Simulated scan of single mutants.
Amino acid sequence: MVDPDASEWLKKQQRASRKTRLIVSTAGILVIAAVLAGVIYTLIHKGTTGGAVGSSDNGNDGNNAGKGANIPSNPDGPYYTNDGKPVSLSITPDPRLHKSFYGVNYGPILALYPWCTNTLGDTIEDLKILSQLTNRLRLYGMDCNMANYTLLAIELLKLNMTVVPTIWVDGNETTYTRQYNDFFNNLDQHGISRIEGVSVGNEALFRKQVTPSDLYSRIADVKSKIQAKYPNSKIPVFTSDIGSNVDQAFIAGTDVVFANVHPYFGGVPVSTGANWTFEFFHNFDSGPAAAAGKPAVISEIGWPTNGASDNASIASVDNLQTFLDTYVCVANQKQIKYYYFESFDTPWKAAYFTTLEGSWGLFNSDRSFKPNIQLPNCQVTAGGITSM
């Protein structure tokens, strides 16, 4: 095993963390991103290799294309993707897909604030695929109807799925207030039966955009308001951060230890990536959490297919296959709870940051299979987040 020294882990995360800039929130970024908007849109809609997955060729006519803010009052549609393709509510099982993942991280590709060109139809098409991989999704924010469309798609498709929404924390109080209010509006609209838990921020401590005491205060506030609105609910409230940031204060301030653990950023070869992950997670996260009587979940785990290497860690499609083969089914056998990172490649990250940043998807950005990838086929044995 490679010794997962916390300081080295932190250095690697500082060089290559994928999510430190997930939400575009500062004025400078908005200006630059506006220049890139045309490039991003082109990249997103450019065809890639691999067979199409879960695509729909039929549907009804209507006017739900475009911005994605208009939700049809008719529950039967019509629904359209951003590029005007009609969407049906039927799911055709794909024999290449297996419900082998405890959970999957889902960031709709076009849900980029403030443009928000995603539609409910796009989300429906995404969930036709993801529902054949898992019963659990984790989201990264509330903007652009991300949680609303996901919950609507689950309802419309009649899926047995739960969601972990995130109230994004980035140091901007306006962003937090907007997302905080949107989260509770979603509970009012959809209820709580499909909410597996709620994350207040992702890697906000790592980015040093909030103090620990402020973050734990926000977690307590969200938990208190949920309990006031739904007295009998047991929705856990927590945050997610890099695994080496878990300490006693983190454990005490959260209902669940939600830890991002990436062997790629540990600089290990893919052949030892799974074992490195299991040992790191136990030593830094699940072990200390269990000692305090708290459950622990790997909130991110994955392997990129393109981009720069990190010491012995090589980004490639072949290595993604190796990691899927060595991690997923073994984690299921060990009853480890994890959310795989991530659903689809994200071209806007590749265009704005690096190729590596946008290349963590199980699928290409157009929902097609990556070349020669075979998804694992095994049973998920762990229960929900709150079950020990």
Rank of each mutant, 00 (worst) to 15 (best):
V317E: 12
I298W: 02
D285L: 04
K349C: 02
K334R: 15
A289Y: 09
K294W: 10
P347S: 09
W303V: 06
K294D: 11
G307S: 05
N306I: 06
I298M: 15
S313W: 07
V328K: 04
T326S: 15
N311E: 08
P304T: 04
E342F: 08
I301Q: 02
K334A: 14
V317Q: 13
I298Y: 01
N332A: 07
A292Q: 14
F284R: 00
P304Q: 09
A312V: 01
A351G: 10
P347N: 09
S299F: 04
Y340N: 06
L320C: 04
D285Q: 08
G307F: 10
G287M: 01
P288W: 14
F323N: 07
L324P: 10
Y339V: 01
Q333H: 07
D285T: 12
Y338N: 11
A291V: 13
F344N: 03
W303G: 03
K334I: 04
Y339N: 11
Y338I: 11
G307R: 05
D310Y: 14
A289G: 13
T305P: 00
V297R: 02
D285P: 00
Q333G: 14
V328Q: 03
G293V: 05
P347K: 09
N306Q: 13
A331N: 02
F323I: 13
I314C: 03
T346D: 14
T322I: 15
D285V: 15
F341M: 01
G302D: 00
F344R: 00
D285H: 04
T346E: 14
I336K: 01
D325G: 10
S309E: 05
A312I: 01
D310M: 13
N306R: 13
A331C: 07
T305W: 06
S309V: 03
A351P: 06
P347A: 08
Y339F: 15
N332Y: 07
P295D: 01
K294C: 08
Y339P: 00
I336R: 02
F344T: 02
D310S: 11
K294Q: 04
Y339H: 11
P304L: 09
A296N: 03
A292G: 11
S313C: 09
E300W: 12
A308P: 01
I298C: 03
K334N: 12
F344M: 03
N319C: 08
E342N: 14
I301F: 04
T305V: 14
D325S: 15
S313I: 08
E342G: 11
V317I: 15
Q321W: 12
F344A: 03
C329I: 12
G287P: 10
N306S: 10
D318F: 05
W303P: 06
T322Y: 01
L320H: 05
S316G: 05
F284L: 02
F344E: 04
V297I: 15
I314P: 00
T326F: 06
G302Q: 03
D318V: 09
D310Q: 15
